[in-house]
């Protein structure tokens, strides 16, 4: 069922920019269209590009914010979230907790 929904109407998660749009809904309470426009502007792509895995996979690699196809040396978890927080200008709870744990701000 999850896969069928994802194919029919989902944004695609880290295959595309679905996780980034979701971040804006969660962090700022933005409605779906506002969240898409915000992310598209930050990434300098069109709203349609946000759910295109070819465009987004390449862009995600360039930005090193994690992608579904993992290559050696690329961001895969908290490292990607540090960059996403900065890219989208939002606070991510787990990033903040990580900084608290190591006792310093990374950027």
């Amino acid at each position: 069922m999850s896969v069928a929904h994802s194919l029919a109407s989902g944004m695609g998660g880290i295959r595309t920019a679905g996780d980034l749009v979701a971040r804006m809904e969660i962090a700022r309470g933005m409605k779906i269209n506002e969240a898409k426009e915000y992310v598209a502007k930050k990434l300098e792509v069109s709203v349609v590009d946000l759910s295109d895995p070819v465009v987004m996979n390449e862009l995600r690699r360039d930005l090193d914010i994690g992608s579904a196809y993992v290559l050696p040396g690329v961001a895969q978890g908290i490292d990607a979230k540090f960059r996403i927080a900065e890219l989208l200008d939002i606070e991510i709870n787990s990033v903040k907790k990580f900084e608290e744990r190591i006792g310093r701000k990374l950027k």
Binding site: S2, A4, H5, S6, L7, A8, S9, G10, M11, G12, G18, V21, A22, E25, I32, A35, V47, V48, S51
Partner: peptide, 15 residues
């Protein structure tokens, strides 16, 4: 057999 939203109308999925 399957259908989908128009390109650009996708939404966020929570689980």
């Amino acid at each position: 057999r399957t259908v989908g939203v128009d390109v650009g109308k996708e939404v966020v999925l929570s689980y």
